[in-house]
Design a protein around this nucleic acid. Structure first.
Lengths: 221, 221
DNA sequence: TCTTTATGAATGAACG
DNA sequence: CGTTCATTCATAAAGA
């Protein structure tokens, strides 16, 4: 076996039998390629959509959304692919939710995610968010603090009082932007939009992907 | 040698030593990747130049948000309860954050707040909270597996040794109510927004490319 | 079309 | 500092 090992190394280093990649490297490579394919597709689609109209009304770049309504012939471009629980996943989640004390627990989340993964694509973050939203919305619905008709502020249920602390930061600056809020203009959601992406692309400008690959994987001589 | 040959084959086929690619395959792969990288960059550049002269997105007037779509039928303006950094403020904050000034520092906070105040309403508490959240969430995100798409990686000198690279997103059966059962990958997190694009990889194109790769190179178990 | 509803995700702020 | 809460954003689906 020792001999075989050496032979293998020899083969590899001399390129006799090609390049060897570890599974991790293959995985990494695969993801990169798929990512580029996706990006190309997205950008191509976006560009096509934009080029089709000289009037860009209704197009949002912030989140890569093109409103089919505002744009005369616009395509709908969706950048975000939100996770959606499958029926099975939802059922399991509801089950756990009702049984548990509402506390997710880091470890628990992991377990749940693993279990749900057998029924569809899912991530721990998804599970976390689900519980977060589930709890929050359940709570909100249970105490909607019905607005009383009389002028007096409605009596709020106990516990809600503490809530006021959270919203004490009141911004009453409307006067500032009534007439000339020009300096406040900015693109919505610039942190999740294409602009950010492009910025990143620029950062890697002049950066040879291929070279990077070679360095990373040491594939070519 | 015969034995070594067999051993090599065994190793390869069982993934013990990874996958082997011929030079031709590597070259093919290289071309594909470079092509995609090029396309992505060009399209991004094109798009950038096009969008440079137009404002398609929703705008915020101080703390008022106006949805561009709603605007087509009547401006829907809602008042904000919480402070939200303007684009300029955010940019400055990110800058400061990336420069590794990991520690807030009371005095520093004051300075930053003063500077940011020139670009919109802000308080020291806001700045403090922002850094707190920024750090916490960045750290949290570095823990679960993340896929770096070329230049998207680096930065974020979190200092936290993010080592665990295990894929948390599990691939399983195609029973998904979204309709596209061919999806394979979905990369969570990444605070640059590129994940929005990558999420698109669930689309058939990405999958096909991947399948093609697998077929072509016989990689992946 | 435009509005409403439901819900995954993002995030400022508060808590322990 | 790490978690958790409350609110808001973004969107798909369903109404009207």
């Amino acid at each position: 076996m020792q001999q075989a090992e050496e032979y293998l190394q020899y083969q590899i280093q001399n390129g006799v039998c090609g390049k060897v990649m570890t599974d991790e490297q293959v995985e990494e490579l695969r993801k990169q390629i798929v990512a580029y394919a996706s990006i190309s597709e997205q950008l191509a689609e976006l560009h096509k959509s934009m080029s089709a109209h000289h009037d860009f009304t209704g197009i949002r770049l912030g989140n890569l959304y093109c409103d089919p309504i505002s744009a005369s012939v616009g395509h709908k471009i969706t950048a975000r692919q939100r996770w959606t629980p499958t029926a099975l996943q939802l059922q399991i989640l509801e089950n756990i939710y009702e049984q548990g004390t509402g506390t997710p627990s880091k470890q628990k989340i992991k377990e749940i995610a693993s279990e749900l993964a057998q029924h569809g694509l899912i991530s721990e973050t998804n599970v976390y968010n689900w519980f977060q939203n589930r709890r929050a919305r359940s709570k909100r619905k249970s105490q909607p603090s019905s607005v009383s008709v009389n002028g007096e502020a409605e009596a709020r249920p106990e516990g809600v009082g503490a809530k006021d602390k959270r919203t004490k930061q009141v911004i009453s600056d409307s006067s500032d932007n009534t007439g000339n809020g020009a300096e406040s203009f900015y693109f919505q959601n610039s942190d999740t939009g294409i602009d950010q992406f492009i910025g990143k692309m620029e950062m890697s400008r002049g950066y040879d992907l291929y070279s990077n690959l070679v360095d990373q994987f040491g594939m070519l001589g």
